[in-house]
């Protein structure tokens, strides 16, 4: 795929001496939803954090929008429009919803238009508007997830990385999150989503990569992955 927005070429990464990814390659098409599926501990979060620059690549190359971003620090990637909504949400707990959103727009690219985008995000998530002065740490998991996504959108991303956005959420709330993912694509964003809820994820995703043991073992369109024998057996319990 030469017209990919994001490409990882033989990327190695990990924590200290421990290598989790050895030579992982994948690509993400612009304007589409791409899914990373795989069991607990497969390495999806490590891939996400490496793309965001929260951990450095020890080998290989990352290309975003045609530029080599391998050596870029995390804030520079945000400034280029590549934004992570992390696993566990990582909102600022003693800050209010409003302050969390302000921080989402701290990247230079986002500062000027922060007010209008905040209002758009409040339109998208009316519950955040109701709770704008509430401390983020006192909100429910679903509300914190909406805030984390809202904070990510404040950076005016061209590509958003969603790491386990439905983890620990009630099914109704999880459905809301998947509706948001569809909405983001409709707005023209490129989405990379890592999820344990494989059925719903593949229903939304245009394309998917199956990650096992720190490597991509299978790739394909969402619908064909959902029909794949191995995927059905390992992740859909069929």
């Amino acid at each position: 795929m030469t017209d990919a927005l994001l490409t990882l070429e033989n990327v190695a990464a990990g924590y200290g001496q421990v290598r989790i990814l050895r030579a992982l390659s994948l690509s993400v098409a612009p304007g589409a939803v791409t899914a990373l599926i795989g069991g607990n501990g497969a390495g999806k979060t490590t891939v996400m954090r490496t793309i965001a620059g929260a951990i450095g690549a020890q080998a290989g190359r990352l290309l975003f929008g045609g530029q080599d971003i391998t050596a870029w620090p995390a804030h520079r990637r945000v400034d280029a429009g590549l934004v992570l909504v992390p696993e566990g949400r990582l909102v600022f707990p003693t800050m209010t919803v409003e302050e969390n959103l302000r921080l989402g727009a701290i990247a230079r690219r986002a500062r000027g238009s922060a007010r209008t985008r905040r209002d758009e995000i409040y339109d998208m998530f009316p519950r955040l508007r109701e709770r704008r002065d509430q401390r983020a740490g006192t909100m429910s998991g679903g509300e914190q997830q909406m805030l984390a996504i809202g904070r990510g959108l404040m950076a005016d991303p061209t590509m958003i990385l969603l790491d386990e956005p439905t983890l620990g959420l009630a099914p109704v709330m999880a459905n809301e999150i998947f509706a948001i993912v569809r909405d983001l694509r409709a707005r023209g964003l490129t989405v990379l989503i890592a999820e344990q809820d494989v059925r719903q994820t593949l229903a939304v995703a245009d394309h998917g990569h199956v990650v096992e043991n720190g490597d991509v073992v299978l790739s394909g369109p969402g619908t064909s992955l959902a029909a794949d024998e191995r995927v059905r057996e390992a992740y859909l319990g069929l």
């Binding site: 929260a54 995390a74 992390p86 600022f92």
Partner: peptide, 16 residues
């Protein structure tokens, strides 16, 4: 303030 409160999140939102 972001760095004081939560370093990992500060990194992710794009604090230099």
């Amino acid at each position: 303030k972001a760095l004081i409160e939560r370093r990992d999140a500060a990194l992710i939102v794009g604090v230099d």
